[in-house]
Computed example of a mutant assay.
Amino acid sequence: MRDLVAMVLAGGRTDALGVLTEKRPQSAIPFGGMFRVIDFVLTNLAESGVEKVGILSQYKPLSLMDHVGIGRPWDYNGRTRELSFLPPYQGSKEIDWYKGTADAVYQNLHFIERHKPKDVLVLSGDHVYRMDYRPLIAMHREKKADLTMVFKPIEVSSPCRFGIGVVGKNGRVLRYFEKPEVPESNLVSLTIYCFRREVLEEQVKENARTGKTFHIYDEIIPQLVQHGKVYGFIFRRGWEYLRPVSAFYDAHMRLLRVRGEKVSMERVRTNLEEEGLAEAPPVYFSSGGVATRSLVAPGSMIFGGVRRSVVFPYVRVEEDTFVAESVVFHRCHIARGARVRRAILDKGCFIGEGAVLDGGDGLIVLGKGVKVMDGAVLKGTMEILPDRVVG
């Protein structure tokens, strides 16, 4: 699909994910036992035949750039396929960088102008879902739309934390509200936009002159709904927002369902050279090791018990240890006799012998490299900053 480019918004830090984004953007957070969040949108683009992709990165991008590289795992290293990182270039301080999503696109209009596509996909790299974008693009072109945006029917609350659209019978977006106090519908915007190129260029240039928030969702979209041709494409499969940290945790628990809506992880591509995934041996279970209703990645060694948890590669769970309802990132070591329940452990954490972590009705979240000493007891909702020693 050479008459289209994609711009992936993957640069922001979100306080809603706390210590998990202390050293990386949300798009680079591990997800699903083997992947990173951005793997899903890149896989979608590759399978949809989108050949030109720009990743708009800003906050602590090293982890993201190391993972994506030149895009080889998604076949973005050929003569006609291209993946580029597009960091901000205005200003010398972080506060001078991208002011918002519209400003991020505006600062990178050179990427669009170089390829001169017919249409531009603008996508969040912070969400987890599997989608073929081709039906969306086909609808957009059939309707001769200025913008076609993707909605999903979801049970919403008041006030609503999502953008909400009201869509007519012909698919035209009649009204759009960003985070309304009282939502008029249950159609949630998924931050998946297909713009006609000329419209996007005109809108971000105007927004650069007159904007206040410099965001697409609360300044450009309402303007286009009122004065342009905006259509809604309805998506009905699994989609995960991942914020706040409780939503990130719940998304992992949904992966363990046998029935019910969840995001498919079939054929998701990732960088297997990173973290030694390509060389990881099969998971090992000792005679006393057991895992039930869990995902356990290669390279892990299970000598104790794991129940209803997601365990990433190279995790070691020792004898007489029990891990339940938890998400354990790469290369964590949970020592003999420890108990871990309702916790998220970032990469390289060590839980000492006989230590107890119990999130109760909340969650315990440990940043990268946290060490919990032997016999320490952590209970209730809490976050521990990376590289701290507790107990």
Rank of each mutant, 00 (worst) to 15 (best):
I29P: 00
F162T: 02
D358H: 11
A10V: 07
W74H: 03
K116A: 13
R243D: 05
R161A: 12
R308M: 07
R254V: 05
V5Q: 00
V327Q: 02
K23R: 15
A251D: 02
V370A: 05
V166T: 09
S287F: 13
V258I: 13
D387V: 11
P222T: 07
Y106D: 00
F350G: 05
I38D: 01
A251H: 02
I220S: 00
F312A: 07
I112L: 07
A16I: 09
R388E: 13
E318F: 15
S185L: 03
R161G: 14
E206C: 06
V296P: 00
H140A: 14
P244R: 04
T21G: 02
I95G: 02
R36V: 09
R134N: 11
L62C: 11
I95N: 10
P183R: 01
K93S: 15
D15E: 10
K152P: 02
E266Q: 13
S189C: 12
Q26T: 14
E178K: 10
D346V: 07
E266R: 14
K144P: 04
D15T: 12
F233N: 00
R72G: 04
I364V: 15
A280F: 12
Y59C: 06
F111I: 03
T101Q: 04
P87Y: 08
R307P: 03
G337K: 03
V356I: 14
P25R: 12
A251Y: 00
D3I: 03
P87S: 05
V50R: 03
A251F: 01
L62T: 15
V37E: 02
E184A: 09
G276W: 05
K169E: 14
I55T: 05
E51R: 14
A343M: 01
R308F: 11
A278M: 10
T210C: 10
C349Q: 06
A104I: 09
H140P: 06
L147W: 08
R388D: 04
V8K: 02
R331N: 15
M301V: 15
V315P: 00
G125I: 07
Y193T: 01
P282C: 04
Y89V: 11
F40V: 10
P183G: 04
V340L: 06
V150N: 00
L56Y: 05
A145I: 11
T14S: 15
